[in-house]
Design a protein around this nucleic acid. Structure first.
Lengths: 212, 212
DNA sequence: GTCTATATACAGATAGAC
DNA sequence: GTCTATCTGTATATAGAC
């Protein structure tokens, strides 16, 4: 690949990426149905027709935008090494909360999506559509599993109450975190308000988990 | 008012109500944008034009449907009388859960609505649109307030730990309930799964609230 | 009040020049 | 690759008969 073709390829990507970025933002903000391709074109500063050159149709653009929104989703287990069980719990709670507030738009987006199965059509589910939601789902369960594992380890190290069921407790932790998040988004509360709730919850949780 | 005019009035209401019922269901199921008046007309078994005779436009129909969905929303404080504080808490949790599962469609509907400020336009917010969401909001706070009051009474009766802040605890209870609900809706879990979580949570909560 | 028929606007998608 | 111009379907909304 020479300089020219490379440069050309970059140019191609630039337009495609501009469309994708605009679409990702607009779909996340306003949803699939109420976002027109004319708006996406305007936001990306390209013509409507160009969208159809880069993407087969609206659905495919939507699915590509979904993937783009999903990119930053992952669990960073590295940052937990070297911490004791209680601090691992605290760290995992914090990183959940931080992640959510770093990705408000797309988190809100996926929440809406999951709330009703808002997918552009049924065929897309068969192809690539539901895969994105599946990934969110997996991530959620991975998070829960992490909590359960930390609790188990904590019990083995005799810092957590051995009579607790780690899976049950992990499920309850996730439910609370999701609740804080949902409340922040739905009641339009400030992140500060959620932060205070989370901090209080951490205290409550540790009182429950620790050996008594 | 004679028999005839009464009967006529009933007939009028029948059509209007049929439209309203169909609209309430369809808007709740599929949202504002992706529900066409043609579908509403078909579901209500009337002509499209009749919708415009009864309602000024799509937005106004939507707002009227919102109100209809809101009707069953209220707190029944009567059913708490005669119970002690712990049972009042348990009863309030149960009635929250029961209410949600009796009104899945509209609860899901309002959750989506609150998640993004999905209102048909901005003018509607100024007129009557946001009032519906405001009412949901008030109801939510009323529920939280009820929990706080019960906790306070429980503390006065020396059945609940006096060192707890009732407001804080009530906030955490609501967050958890919302979390269970959000999880059920978003992860598509069965009501049974939520029921189990709620039951477990009640145990956890009572361990925390009671005098130690 | 309820209908059929129609006006008007805008959506997604295509054709073809450059 | 990117554009302008255009096709086609469908949405909201209206007109007017009954």
């Amino acid at each position: 690949m020479n300089e020219d073709s490379h440069h050309q390829a970059e140019e191609v990507r630039a337009a495609r990426e501009k469309i994708l970025a605009a679409a990702a933002r607009l779909f996340a903000e306003r949803g699939y149905e109420s976002t027109s391709l004319a708006e996406v074109a305007r936001a990306a500063k390209v013509s409507k027709a160009l969208i159809f050159w880069h993407f087969d149709n609206k659905q495919q653009l939507y699915l590509s935008a979904l993937k783009k929104n999903l990119e930053p989703y992952h669990i960073d287990r590295e940052e937990l090494t070297g911490l004791d069980a209680p601090h691992q719990i605290a760290r995992l709670i914090d990183s959940f909360y931080e992640f959510v507030n770093d990705n408000v738009y797309s988190v809100r987006f996926f929440m809406t999506l999951m709330l009703r199965g808002e997918l552009p059509s049924e065929e897309s589910a068969a192809s690539t559509g539901s895969t994105s939601l599946q990934r969110v789902n997996e991530l959620y369960r991975a998070f829960r599993q992490s909590f359960a594992e930390i609790i188990t380890v904590g019990q083995q190290q005799a810092v957590f109450n051995p009579s607790l069921d780690p899976e049950r407790e992990a499920a309850l932790i996730l439910v609370t975190l999701v609740g804080v998040l949902a409340q922040q988004f739905m009641l339009g509360e400030s992140p500060d308000c959620s932060k205070a709730l989370i901090d209080h919850y951490k205290l409550v949780l540790f009182q429950r988990l620790r050996c008594s």
